[in-house]
Design a protein around this nucleic acid. Structure first.
Length: 420
RNA sequence: GCGGCCGUAGUUCAGUUGGUAGAGCCCAGGAUUGUGAUUCCUGUUGUCGCGGGUUCGAGCCCCGUCGGCCGCCCCA
C-alpha cells in the first residue's frame, strides 16, 4: 500500500518545523485579537459551488466530490472561507453588526496535478474579519501577514494588490471586456475563448505570449471602478504607505474565486518555482448575503503553510532545537528496576526535562557517543557505584568547566533546575 | 487536464555494447576491565516502483501502469 498521489507524510525529523510554525502563527493571530474557529472538512458541494463560483477551476475540476450514504453531494473543502462563512451564519455570530475576527487552520483538498509546492492535501491558515467595511480591516490583515513573514524570517517576498470594485462596477467592466475581446476574437487562444463568456477577467491573466498584445491594449479595470471603491483602495494604499509596507499594484491580479470584490492581494515569492503565492486574500462583501445571511461586509486571507515550510527547508531558515536535554548512561549490569525507579523520580522532580534513557545499554563509550550524536546537554550516569551510594553522576556534555559531578538527588535536581 | 524529464539499499547516487547488483553517508557493534572528536575494524538492508513483452538471458530494450520533478493551467 502506498500513499495517495499528492498526499505526504510529515516525518519526526521535520515535524518540529510545523510545530514551531503553528506556535508562531497562532501567537501572531491572537496578538491581533483574532479568535480561533473550527468547522468541518466536509460540506455540501453546493456550498462551494455557490460561494466559489460555477465557472472557476476549483469547482470545475479540482474538488474531491462524492455522495454521502444518503445520496447528498458532498465535497472535501477546497478552501476555507466558504465553510467559515457558513459557520458564522448558522451560529449567528454576526447578528446586529457584531464584529467578528476569526482564524482557522486545517487541511484543504484540491484534485490537481502535484508539483513542488502543490499537493492535493495541504494546510491553510486563514483569517477573516466580518462587519468592518472600511479599508482599516483590509490593511490590518495585510499588516498582520507582513508581521508573520518578519517573524518567520522569510526573505524575498513581495505584496501585490489590486481593486476589483463593487460587484456592479465589475459587471459593467465585464461587459466592456467581452465587447473588446469579441472584436478581436480571431486573436484569442482556446483558453481565452472558453473564458470569454464565463470569466473574461481571467483572460487578462493569460501568460500566452501571443496574447500579450491584445491583453496589453484591453480596457483597464481601474477606469471602471466606482467612486467608493477607488476611495477605498486609495485609503488602503495610504495606510500601507504610512506603515512602511511596500507593494506593487497589479492591475491584472484577479484571483480565481468569484466572491471577491474591491481589495484583492497576494504575497509572492520567487523561491518556489512556479508556485509563487504563499498567501492570498481579499474582500468579499456580498458572500455572506449570497450564502443566506444578512448583508455583512467581510475580508480575509489564507496562507499555505506547506509552501512556507518548503521555503524554510529550501532556504535553511530555521535550526532545530535539541530533542534531548539529558541522556541516561547506564551500566548494563544494573537491573532495570533501579533505573526505572530513579528515572521516574527524576521525571516527577523535573517535568520539563526531556530525558532519554538508553533502553538497550551497551558499553559506556557507545552510550556517550549516542548522547553526543543527539547533542544532549547532559549525561546522567548510573553505575554500580551510584546505586551503592544512592547518588547520581551528572556530566555536562558542552561545558568543560562543569565537568562531571557525583551528587545526591536533591543537589542533582537543584543543579538541573538552574539549567532548565 | 496538456507537454517534457525521471524512478536502483533508510538516504545520495554508480552500474560501461542486455550476462540476475555496488559506493559514500546514515545506522549498529567494537578497538582490553565506567566516558563524547578524528581515525580504524566489523556488520545489516535491495521483489533494481509495479505489471506485461522481446531475448537463451533485462536494472539496462519495448508497452502499459503507478509515483516524483519541471513547464502550462490554476492557486495556498
Amino acid at each position: 500500500m502506498e500513499r495517495l498521489r499528492g498526499m505526504y507524510d510529515v516525518l519526526p525529523s521535520e515535524v518540529w518545523i510545523w510545530q514551531r510554525m503553528e506556535k508562531i502563527v497562532s501567537q501572531v493571530f491572537q496578538s491581533y485579537s483574532f479568535q480561533e474557529i473550527r468547522f468541518p472538512v466536509v460540506e455540501e458541494t453546493a456550498l462551494f459551488t455557490t460561494a466559489i463560483g460555477e465557472a472557476t477551476d476549483v469547482v470545475e475540476k479540482e474538488m474531491f466530490s462524492f455522495q454521502s450514504r444518503s445520496g447528498l453531494p458532498i465535497s472535501l473543502r477546497p478552501e476555507g472561507t466558504a465553510g467559515c462563512v457558513r459557520a458564522v451564519i448558522q451560529n449567528d455570530l454576526c447578528n446586529r453588526g457584531t464584529i467578528q475576527k476569526l482564524w482557522y487552520q486545517g487541511p484543504i483538498f484540491r484534485y490537481e496535478r502535484p508539483q513542488k509546492g502543490r499537493n492535493r492535501q495541504f494546510t491553510q491558515y486563514g483569517a477573516e474579519i466580518f462587519n468592518v467595511s472600511s479599508p482599516q480591516a483590509d490593511a490590518e490583515l495585510i499588516l498582520m501577514s507582513a508581521r508573520l513573514w518578519k517573524k518567520i524570517g522569510l526573505p524575498n517576498i513581495t505584496l501585490e494588490i489590486n481593486s476589483l470594485g463593487t460587484g456592479q462596477a465589475r459587471l459593467e467592466y465585464r461587459e466592456v471586456l467581452i465587447t473588446y475581446f469579441k472584436s478581436h476574437i480571431d486573436q484569442l487562444d482556446k483558453d481565452a475563448l472558453s473564458r470569454l463568456e464565463t470569466n473574461p477577467l481571467r483572460i487578462l491573466d493569460s501568460k500566452n505570449p501571443k496574447m500579450q498584445e491584445i491583453v496589453q491594449n484591453a480596457p483597464v479595470l481601474s477606469d471602471y471602478l466606482d467612486e467608493e471603491s477607488m476611495d477605498h483602495f486609495e485609503q488602503l494604499k495610504s495606510i500601507l504607505d504610512e506603515c512602511g509596507i511596500k507593494y506593487v499594484v497589479n492591475q491584472k491580479l484577479v484571483r480565481g474565486l468569484d466572491y471577491y470584490s474591491r481589495t484583492v492581494f497576494e504575497w509572492i515569492t520567487s523561491d518556489l518555482g512556479s508556485q509563487g503565492t504563499i498567501c492570498g486574500g481579499g474582500r468579499y462583501d456580498s458572500l455572506v448575503e449570497l450564502q443566506g445571511g444578512k448583508p455583512t461586509p467581510a475580508v480575509g486571507f489564507a496562507m499555505g503553510l506547506d509552501r512556507i515550510i518548503e521555503l524554510i527547508k529550501d532556504l535553511n531558515l530555521w535550526q532545530p532545537d535539541n530533542q534531548v536535554d539529558a541522556y541516561m548512561v547506564i551500566d548494563k549490569e544494573i537491573h532495570m528496576k533501579h533505573i526505572n525507579k530513579i528515572s521516574e523520580k527524576i521525571r516527577s522532580a523535573l517535568p520539563n526535562l526531556n530525558l532519554l534513557i538508553n533502553q538497550n545499554p551497551s558499553s559506556f563509550k557507545a552510550q556517550f557517543k549516542k548522547a553526543d550524536k543527539l547533542s544532549a546537554d547532559f549525561a546522567i550516569i548510573i553505575g554500580e557505584h551510584e546505586i551503592k551510594n544512592e547518588s547520581i553522576t551528572l556530566k555536562s556534555l558542552n561545558d568543560k568547566d562543569f565537568g562531571q559531578k557525583e551528587m545526591k538527588f536533591d543537589e542533582f535536581v537543584n543543579t538541573l533546575n538552574q539549567y532548565k
